[in-house]
Amino acid sequence: MKEELMYDGITEIREDIIERAEVYAFPGEAENAEGPKGLTKKARKVHPVWVTIAVVAACLVLVVASPFVYIATRRAGSEAPATNPGQSLHGNKRPGDAETGKENPGDKAPETSVASADVWIYFVQDGEVCKERYRMNLQAEVVFDRWRAENGIGEEVQLLECEIRSKAITEQQGKVGFHTSGYDFSMYLTVSKNLESYYEQKDEVLLLDSLKQTMTGYSGLTYQEYHLILE
């Protein structure tokens, strides 16, 4: 195989080149070098305690409030006429939903109040991942549509499902709902398989990285796991 011949060719390169590469000090190593033994250790940014507390508190509020918002939006959805039955809290369509034709992503689910905020959209440009801030509804589909447009990806590539799982449990006992917060969030993003056809045009690694950063970044949650499923 030609690749194996290339491997063999690299094996036989001059010894002085190998030795130079072995002792070469990369810039990141010099910055992060610590300790008397010359061991390299990545410098860790230490946040003040109040930042950590504020982040944990914000997450708790978000987790505790989300089921109530969900129930409220469901109730509003069932009472209001001409609602969009397939739309979840995050605005993503589920498989089997009726096609509603082209519409402005920002106009989706007008009957429910969806918070809008500045969202970083990551995209691949000139061989690197860049980002741009846009004000938009915090809906997975809206964010995905913008990511798709920024990366020059056609509308045939669809967001099929965006599921956020946590270990939170909500139980209904009579008229009272009890909620146990969960801290470990996992995002399961299902995108149509034809995204793969853009891997040649855009660098696959960078493209998927930009998708991951965009979709896991807009909600303000910290995800322990991220799974991309192409169907």
Partner: peptide, 27 residues
């Protein structure tokens, strides 16, 4: 022979690129 050409090409690179290539594909 191929290794001769590769060595020549590595010599023409900036030190950091040369080190990166060798560290990835030799080490």
């Amino acid at each position: 022979e191929l290794s001769g050409y590769i060595s020549e090409w590595l010599d023409s690179l900036p030190a950091e690129d040369c080190a990166l290539f060798v560290r990835r594909y030799w080490f």
